[in-house]
Design a protein around this nucleic acid. Structure first.
Lengths: 371, 371
DNA sequence: ATGAAAGCGCTAACAA
DNA sequence: TTGTTAGCGCTTTCAT
C-alpha cells in the first residue's frame, strides 16, 4: 500500500480531466444530467438561493406558499443538497473517524459497532481506517482521517508516545482507547487488564490452585505486557504461588502447540493470554487425554463470542467492547460541543466462571508446599 | 435512532452559533489558534494562493526556491489543506460508502475489510453505516451515505426491488453485493449458494447418505430461501433422497435445540443453514451421546473462522468474503473512472470436507429403500 | 418574510 | 513560471 508516498487519491483511469465544471455526472450508462444545485432550484422556483436554503433546512420563517413552491421545484429537479458544500460552509462534516490496528479483531469490530451506532444517534457518520498494525502508517493515517472529519477515535494505537504527543493536537478532538497520554487532556478509555487478571487469579486460588502457567501473548503486545505483569504481581503477592511463563502467541494454533509444555510445567491451572489461545490449549489438552477441568483448569481472557461454546465452556474475563465504542462517542460528542469530556474510565473486566476451571485434583493440592 | 425524522446532524451542545467565521477551533483546552488556510500560507510566503496550491500538490512547474519558501511557511503555520474545500473544488471526495445490514455478521465484517483495504490502495477512504436490518431506514441511509461520498457498495440490501430500482440512479456509482437488479446496469457480485448446497449434497451422497435433514434458517432470510430451494431441487433430482426440513434459525442455540428433532427425523446427515447452527447441532448431538460422524454426519455453510475448531472440525462450504469486498472495489473504481464495471460474478463456494461428515453407519444405508 | 452579497478554502483556466 | 480570477454549492449576516 502506497500510503506513505503519494497521499492523494488516485484519479480513476479515463476520467476526463475537466474538473468540476463539467458537472457531476450520472454514471452507469445514464444520460448525462447536470445535477441540480441550489441555484437551479432557486431559479425554477423563482426565489433566491437563500430561500431555498431556508426551506431545505426547515426554517420556520418562510411563507408557506413559497416553501411549497420550493419543495415542488426541488422535487422536480431531483435536487439533493451537496453535503460537501454544506460542510465547507458550516465548517463541520458530521463525520468522525475511527482508526483500528486490525479490523479482524473482535475487540475492534465491537468498538466499531458501538461507536457507529452511538454516532448515528446524533446524525454523525463513521469513517473507518485500518492501520494493519503498521506503526509507520498509523500516524499518517490518523492525521489524514482526522482531516476528513470532525473528530477521531484512536483504538489501541501502536504509535510511540513521543510521536502521539507530537500530533495529538492536530488530532483533537481526539479520544484514545486502550492508551493514555499522561499529562495531556486527551480523554482515554481503557480496560483494566490487571484487574481482570487479579480476578482470574483469585478465582483460581479459591479453587486451591497454587501452580499457574501463563501462556504468554506476542511480546510486542501491550495488553500482553499488562496481563503478564499483573500475573507476576499477583503471584508474588501470594504466600505460595508458582508461576511458569510459556512464550506462546495469540492464536488457536499457538495454544494448541503449547499443550505438552503445559503438562511439563507441572501447573494445575493455565491462564491464557486470550480466549483463542485458551481455546487452542483446550483442544491440545483434549488430544493428550487430559480432562478439563478434571485434571487441569484453563482460563481465557476477552470473552470472545465463541468462548461459551467451547468444550468445556471457557472461564474468562469479559470486557465491554461495545461500551468502549459507545462511551468513546460520548467523549467525542462532548469535545465537539466544546465542553469537557467526562472522566476517563478504566473498565473493569468481569470474571465469567464457566466450566473450564475447577478444584485442584486430589493429591496435587500440596505440590507446591512439598517442593 | 432518529434517522427518519430530522436527517441533519445534531449540533453539539454549547457550540457557539457563530458559524465558520469564528474560525476552526482547537478543542481540548488548546489556546484558540485560527487554523492556517492556503491564503495565510501564501501571504507568509509572499506568493499567490495558486502557487501554494501547486506546491502542495507537487506540481513540477514551481521554481525550487519558491517551493522551498512555501513549504517552510506551511510548516511554520502548521498548515494542512482542508480536504472539504478540496473536495468541493475537485468535485470528488475520495471516499466511498458501505452499507451493511449487520456489522456483527462475519460475512459483512470481511466484506468491510476487503473493501477498505482495496480502496485504501487507491487512496480512498471508507464510510461505514449499518442499517440494523431496518428496511425502512436502509434506503434513506443509502442515499445519505452516497451523498457524502463518491460511490456506494450496498451489501445484501433488504430494500424491496421496486424501491431499490427507484433510487438506483441516485446511488450510482453503485455496486450490489448478494443482490441483483435485473435489467439495470448496476454491477452485482454474489455468492452462488445453490452451487454450495449442490456440492454439499453431492459429497453427502458420495458417502452413501440418502436421508437428509435441513436445519432451516430464518424465513425472512434470502440466503436461507436460496439454500433451501437448492436443497429441494437437488434432492428431487436424485433417484432416492428423502429431505426433511426443520424450522430452526440462525444461531448456536437454535441448532442446539434441534438435536432431538434431528434424531427423530431418521436422517443420516444434517445440512445446517449456517455454521453456527451446525455448531449448535454438534453440541446438542454430543450431549445426547450421538457420535459425529460415526452415527450422523453434519455439514455447515459459510466457513466462519471457528468452523475448523469445532469438535469435530466442521465440513462446510466456504465463501470468499474478503474477495467480495475486494472485487466490489474493483467494480466501483471502474465506475468512478467512467468505464464499464467488468462482468458480474457469481462466486462459487468451495466445499471444505473436514471431519464432521463420514460414511453412512452400517445398517442404515438402505433405510430409504426399505420404506 | 425575502433577497443581495460575502464568505467557507481550495483548484484551474487564462493571462502575463 | 507565476499571479489573477472565477468558480465549486451552500449558509448566513445584513438590509429591505
Amino acid at each position: 500500500m502506497s500510503l506513505t508516498g503519494d497521499r492523494r487519491a488516485a484519479q480513476p483511469a479515463d476520467e476526463p480531466t475537466g474538473g468540476p465544471r463539467s458537472g457531476r455526472r450520472r454514471r452507469s450508462g445514464r444520460p448525462e444530467q447536470p445535477a441540480a444545485t441550489i441555484g437551479r432550484v432557486a431559479e425554477a422556483a423563482g426565489v433566491s438561493r437563500a430561500t431555498v436554503s431556508r426551506v431545505m433546512n426547515g426554517s420556520p420563517t418562510v411563507a408557506a406558499e413559497l416553501a411549497a413552491r420550493v419543495r415542488a421545484a426541488a422535487e422536480a429537479l431531483n435536487y439533493e443538497p451537496s453535503l460537501v458544500a454544506r460542510s465547507l460552509a458550516l465548517g463541520r462534516t458530521s463525520t468522525v473517524s475511527l482508526i483500528v490496528p486490525d479490523l479482524s479483531n473482535p475487540m475492534f469490530q465491537d468498538v466499531l459497532r458501538g461507536l457507529s451506532h452511538a454516532a448515528a444517534g446524533q446524525g454523525y457518520r463513521l469513517l473507518v481506517a485500518e492501520s494493519n498494525e503498521n506503526v509507520a502508517e498509523e500516524a499518517i493515517l490518523a492525521v489524514e482521517a482526522r482531516r476528513r472529519s470532525d473528530g477521531l477515535v484512536l483504538a489501541s494505537p501502536r504509535v510511540p508516545e513521543a510521536e502521539l504527543r507530537a500530533i495529538s493536537d492536530r488530532l483533537a478532538p481526539l479520544v484514545l482507547l486502550n492508551r493514555d497520554l499522561p499529562g495531556s487532556s486527551v480523554p482515554s478509555l481503557s480496560v483494566d487488564y490487571a484487574a481482570g487478571i487479579a480476578a482470574i487469579v483469585a478465582h483460581l486460588r479459591s479453587l486451591g490452585h497454587r501452580r499457574i502457567v501463563y501462556l504468554a501473548g506476542p511480546a510486542a503486545s501491550t495488553s500482553n505486557r499488562e496481563r503478564q505483569a499483573a500475573l507476576r504481581a499477583n503471584c508474588a503477592a501470594e504466600p505460595v504461588c508458582v508461576l511458569t511463563e510459556l512464550a506462546c502467541g495469540a492464536t488457536f494454533d499457538d495454544g494448541h502447540a503449547a499443550a505438552k509444555a503445559i503438562l511439563r510445567s507441572g501447573a494445575t491451572a493455565v491462564v491464557a493470554f486470550n480466549d483463542m489461545v485458551a481455546f487452542g490449549a483446550l483442544s491440545g489438552l483434549h488430544e493428550l487425554g487430559i480432562g478439563v477441568p478434571r485434571d487441569l483448569s484453563v482460563a481465557g481472557f476477552d470473552d470472545i463470542p465463541f468462548a461459551r461454546y467451547t468444550t468445556p465452556p471457557l472461564t474468562t474475563a469479559s470486557i465491554p467492547r461495545n461500551e468502549l465504542g459507545r462511551q468513546a462517542w460520548d467523549r467525542l460528542w462532548a469535545l465537539l460541543g466544546g465542553g469537557p469530556a467526562g472522566h476517563d474510565v478504566h473498565f473493569q473486566p468481569r470474571l465469567l466462571v464457566r466450566d473450564s476451571t475447577g478444584p485442584v485434583p486430589a493429591g496435587r493440592a500440596e505440590a507446591v508446599g512439598e517442593r
